[in-house]
Design a protein around this nucleic acid. Structure first.
Length: 139
DNA sequence: TGCGGAACCA
DNA sequence: TGGTTCCGCA
């Protein structure tokens, strides 16, 4: 496990999430992981947690897209393309759209690992520190 | 803005 | 397999 703790929250991911792209049997960084990473850091402005548990709001869509593009080496990334990738998550139950709220999506934490990595002795611990307390989900 | 098909790529 | 790119539609 690795942890990132800088301000807004604390995020813990299983090791596979951090395996570099070149290592054998590894995967490239997943979009959902990238989003969680930014959310955990409280990465100024581009994306932020929403009101409900797991809900997030994209404050600056094109900036988020640029960040994602930089990570993946896709200089022509934009929100149109990034949002298409997010929509592919609907069928996998990783995400769904919060209808009526602009740029607002919601994670399905309970399904995130199970769907993506079946059979993996999986665990995702996400602690959100907010004024009214903290929550923990273990999948 | 948001959706999902289709072709395509690593 | 997870997107990326492009696009017509509502």
């Amino acid at each position: 496990l690795k942890a990132g703790d800088e301000g807004g929250g604390l995020l813990l991911f299983p090791d596979w999430a951090y395996k570099p792209a070149w290592s054998p049997g590894s995967r490239q960084v997943q979009l959902w992981h990238f989003l969680l990473e930014l959310l955990g850091r409280g990465e100024g402005g581009a994306i932020d947690w929403g009101r409900e548990w797991g809900e997030f709001v994209i404050r600056d869509p094109e900036r988020l897209a640029r960040l994602w593009g930089e990570r993946k080496g896709k200089p022509h990334m934009n929100y149109d393309k990034l949002s298409r990738a997010l929509r592919y998550y609907y069928n996998k139950s990783i995400l769904h759209k919060t209808k009526g709220k602009r740029f607002t999506y919601k994670f399905n934490f309970s399904k995130l690992i199970l769907v993506n990595y079946p059979g993996y002795p999986s665990f995702l611990i996400l602690v959100q520190k907010e004024g009214d307390g903290s929550s923990i989900i273990i999948g």
